[in-house]
C-alpha cells in the first residue's frame, strides 16, 4: 500500500508544481517556441533573450514591480505596527465593549472585497470632499484600507492570548509597566505570529487585483500583479520572464518562512 501512496503523492506534487515550472521554463524559450499551441515544458534551446529584452527595451516595466514592492511593504509594516498594540489590548486588557468591538473585527475578515469596496469608496469620496485628501487613483486607496484590515489583529491576538498570564503577572510584580512588558515579554513571544502575518499579508498583497482595478485609473501606478496582464497582451514574447521575476520574491519568502505558517495558521483556530 505504501509504495502506491508514495507514487500517488509524488504525481500530485508534480501536478501542483507544474504551472510554476512551466512559467519558469517558458521564460527561457525563444519567441518561435512560445507560439506553439501545445504545452511545452522543455526549451528547445536555452535562451536568455526574454530577460535581455526585458532589461534593455522594457526597463520601464520595472516601475510596476516597484509599485508592488512599495504597496506590499507599507501595508505589511503598517499592519504590524497598528496590529500588535490592538491585539495585545484585545487579548490581555479589560475595557468595556472589548468583546463587541472584537466581534466586529472578526466579521469584517470574512467579507469579500466587493462588499467593503462600497464603504471604502464612500469614505474616499467623503475625505476628498471634506478634507481635500486625495485617495482615489493613488496607491493610498489600496494602502490605507489594507493597513486597517482586521485579519492581522485577529491573528496576533490569538497568539498573545496563549501567553500564560503567570509570566505577565511575574513581570508586573518585578515592577514592569505596560510599555516595558510589551517590549520585553509580548513582542519576543509573538515573533512567529508576526512572521506568519508577514507571509500571509505578502501573499495577499503581492497578488492584489480587485482594489487596483477598481480604485486606480492611471496606468503608471498599477502594481505588477495587474499590469502583468497588459504585458501578456502587449509583449507576449517577454511575458514569461516578467512573470518569473515577479514570482521570485513570493517563492523566496515562502520557502524561507513557510514553517511559520504551520504554527501561525493553527492558532488562528477559533478557541
Amino acid at each position: 500500500m505504501k509504495p502506491i501512496l508514495y507514487i500517488l503523492i509524488i504525481v500530485i506534487a508534480i501536478i501542483f508544481i507544474l504551472p510554476i515550472v512551466y512559467t519558469v521554463s517558458n521564460s527561457f524559450m525563444d519567441a518561435r517556441q512560445l507560439e506553439t499551441n501545445k504545452i511545452e515544458i522543455l526549451p528547445d534551446r536555452f535562451s536568455l533573450n526574454q530577460y535581455f529584452d526585458l532589461a534593455i527595451f522594457k526597463g520601464e516595466y520595472f516601475y510596476y514591480f516597484l509599485n508592488s514592492v512599495k504597496l506590499t511593504t507599507i501595508i505589511i509594516l503598517g499592519q504590524i505596527l497598528v496590529g500588535v498594540f490592538a491585539a495585545y489590548a484585545f487579548a490581555k486588557m479589560e475595557f468595556p465593549g472589548r468583546d463587541f468591538i472584537f466581534l466586529l473585527y472578526i466579521l469584517v475578515i470574512i467579507l469579500p472585497f466587493q462588499v467593503t469596496m462600497v464603504p471604502n469608496y464612500i469614505m474616499f469620496d467623503n475625505l476628498q470632499k471634506t478634507f481635500n485628501l486625495k485617495f482615489l487613483d493613488t496607491l493610498k486607496a489600496i494602502i490605507f484600507p489594507g493597513i486597517f484590515t482586521s485579519f492581522g489583529v485577529f491573528l496576533l491576538r490569538q497568539f498573545i492570548r496563549d501567553i500564560p498570564n503567570d509570566i505577565i503577572e511575574a513581570s508586573r510584580v518585578d515592577g514592569a509597566g505596560d510599555i516595558r512588558l510589551f517590549f520585553s515579554i509580548i513582542l519576543p513571544a509573538i515573533r512567529p505570529a508576526v512572521f506568519t502575518l508577514v507571509i500571509l499579508s505578502f501573499i495577499d498583497n503581492w497578488n492584489i487585483i480587485e482594489q487596483a482595478v477598481i480604485f486606480i485609473s492611471s496606468q503608471e501606478i498599477l502594481p505588477l500583479s495587474v499590469f502583468l496582464e497588459t504585458i501578456y497582451y502587449k509583449d507576449f514574447n517577454i511575458f514569461y520572464s516578467a512573470a518569473t521575476l515577479y514570482m521570485f520574491p513570493a517563492i523566496l519568502i515562502f520557502t524561507k518562512g513557510h514553517k511559520y505558517l504551520n504554527e501561525g495558521l493553527n492558532v488562528g483556530g477559533m478557541k
Binding site: I14, L18, P19, N207, Y232, M247, A250
Partner: peptide, 21 residues
C-alpha cells in the same frame, strides 16, 4: 519538498500563472 510543492501555489500571484492556465 513534496509537501512544499503542494503548498507553494498559495503564494503564486494569479497573473503569473495566467499564461499556463
Amino acid at each position: 519538498h513534496i509537501k512544499l510543492a503542494i503548498i507553494l501555489p498559495i503564494a503564486i500571484p494569479s497573473a503569473v500563472t495566467s499564461g499556463f492556465f
